[in-house]
Design a protein around this nucleic acid. Structure first.
Lengths: 344, 344
DNA sequence: TTGTATGCGTTATCAC
DNA sequence: GTGATAACGCATACAA
């Protein structure tokens, strides 16, 4: 028993297919025809075939979402996007690539082959050429989180450098002069800029950076562990560490705990990303909170306006700010600073 | 400049469309034709139109993934699924419904209208009727995590009741007699079974359950906070609490921290779900670890076999076991039990 | 093995 | 407003 088509509906309602089609697309219809069509649809359990529609309209009402992994941040964005885009009739097809070039290519080809209407992606340097190819097509591409430099398209990024600089400056304010940094892949803007913020903070304070304290990882938990392990093994270890994302921070915390070191006492710690649990890990992890809702809102707005055709011709370039959540892991006890704004 | 079609490729290669089509579908082709077609495809940047193909083949190579929210558990499963299904040419379109009936219906209608080949869903009681409708169609439906009773289809579930019972029994072993429980929505099997495990453990130990200690929440962080707050306010508070998922645990931890209570000292705590950070929250949260990889593997295997047609006629019903990770939050210090296996 | 023709379920373009 | 009909891009049965 095959799925009913528009033709079955037309038969059952005693009208022509064109009329049914017009009904489905909210065009003017005689009232009695309308009721009979609705009846027929209900009787037959008819569901419009999106594929056939897409063939004519060149619109699949589908948006691609391509990220390196579904971590807390990307899942959070996805949650919002599914909701807000679904409200406008769009579905989201997801891809993740683990930063592997093959996976990225496969995903982009699949996306292209599926004729998705737009793609939202967290950039990687690997991505550049394929994205250029996409851009030469007619599908809007929106980049978030990790920039793909040299690509001219809509972007929603956080102010990585400024946020990192601000955070590290705070660490310096608290009296730290030897601050370790664990950053992610430097091929991406995120890794680069967060490290750059770390350097700028030092520069501004007239401190020089001991390159031994700069650890370049790849965003993974293990990287954080390894980095912290190296720091702890040093003759002159850092008194505080700045982590560029939460997964590496978890690794670092794991290492500290394995070595019996106490955060906020033996060593201070500040991190990019603020998952809920950081508040609960004593003495509270000082963290840079990325405004997930805000980012998702911008993405939604941009996607929809591009698809509506109401977007400006030039690519938009949005930078959102992050908030530093001061908590015990930046030794508040050690030096009672004037304002320590904590979330309630 | 429109996207090239199979016809353009055929022209450019000097062959007929049928030949190109056969090439695309890995059928036998004369060698020289093959090379010329490949050349043409490269020249034109041709990408097969999945939609048009799907209209003929009735296969979209798309699998739907419908969950209440993209939390750590569901995101973890999704990560694995995207990878393993992509390897077989399938893309995943995601939906989340926040347990709202409207959202569920919309998602299922969208899925149906998109002619996805199969759908993997974390059940809800709300889902029942619509799922039945789907099942009467030809799309395979695979249920995981939360059962939809009365629906006959493939299922991959964890042994909720046994795992909970085991965990609570351990708590009783440790000397607890007043154990609070915070469970999720009792309309779902997950909430029901985990609570049932709690009851069974009591029964088996000859303890009666004080119904005052049973808090029914809805899986959210706030529920955990509220529950713990109520427990703490009691005249005769529980000496330990069992949480049915990690989000509620976070809420509970938050409440404890706000009230200056120490886990593993003032109160013991065991939870379903084991996100990485639970190891790091002192003194370590004793947790029931769900085997995400294993679940995802089963789901993949079932989906693929259904789509291959190699699956048995009868629905499969898989139950996987969970591991209890004993940590400090179940007062090991208080009563040194014989075996306390901790992950290394 | 290859070319040709038909149809998949819609929408859009016509006359009516 | 409505009905008939030609596309959309591909796979496939059939003829060559």
């Amino acid at each position: 028993m095959k799925k009913p088509t528009i033709l079955d509906v037309a038969d059952s309602a005693g009208v022509a297919v064109g009329t049914v089609s017009r009904y489905l697309n909210d065009q003017r219809i005689r009232k009695d025809n309308r009721t009979r069509i609705e009846q027929a649809i209900a009787d037959l359990g008819y569901r419009a075939n999106t594929l056939a529609r897409a063939m004519k309209t060149e619109r699949t009402n589908t948006v691609g979402y391509l990220v390196p992994k579904f971590d807390e941040f990307n899942s959070g964005i996805l949650t919002q996007l599914v909701r807000s885009l679904r409200a406008r009739g769009y579905s989201i097809v997801t891809f993740h690539h683990s930063d592997e070039a093959d996976a990225i290519n496969e995903a982009l080809e699949s996306a292209s082959s599926r004729r998705i209407d737009a793609i939202i992606l967290s950039g990687t340097h690997e991505v550049t050429e394929k994205v250029q190819e996409l851009l030469s097509g007619e599908q809007p591409v929106i980049i978030f989180n990790n920039d793909v430099p040299g690509v001219e398209t809509d972007k929603v990024l956080v102010n990585d450098e400024a946020a990192a600089q601000d955070a590290v400056s705070r660490m310096i304010d608290f009296g730290h002069t030897r601050i370790g940094v664990v950053t992610g892949d430097l091929n991406g803007s995120t890794g680069q800029n967060r490290l750059q913020g770390y350097r700028k903070a030092h520069e501004q304070a007239g401190l020089s950076v001991d390159e031994e304290l700069v650890y370049v990882g790849n965003w993974g938990q293990l990287d954080g562990y390894t980095a912290m392990d190296r720091f702890l093994g040093m003759e002159n270890p850092p008194s505080a560490v700045f982590f560029s994302n939460y997964l590496m921070t978890i690794g670092g915390l794991d290492c500290l705990s394995s070595n019996g070191k106490q955060v906020g006492k033996d060593i201070d710690l500040v991190t990019f990303d603020d998952p809920d649990m950081f508040r609960l890990i004593p003495p509270g992890i000082t963290a840079i909170e990325q405004p997930i809702e805000q980012i998702a809102r911008h993405l939604t707005e941009i996607v929809l306006s591009r698809l509506d055709g109401t977007a400006p011709d030039h690519p938009r370039n949005i930078r959102v700010n992050c908030a530093l959540k001061l908590r015990g892991s930046l030794g508040v006890a050690r030096k009672a600073s004037g304002k320590t704004h904590e979330d309630s």
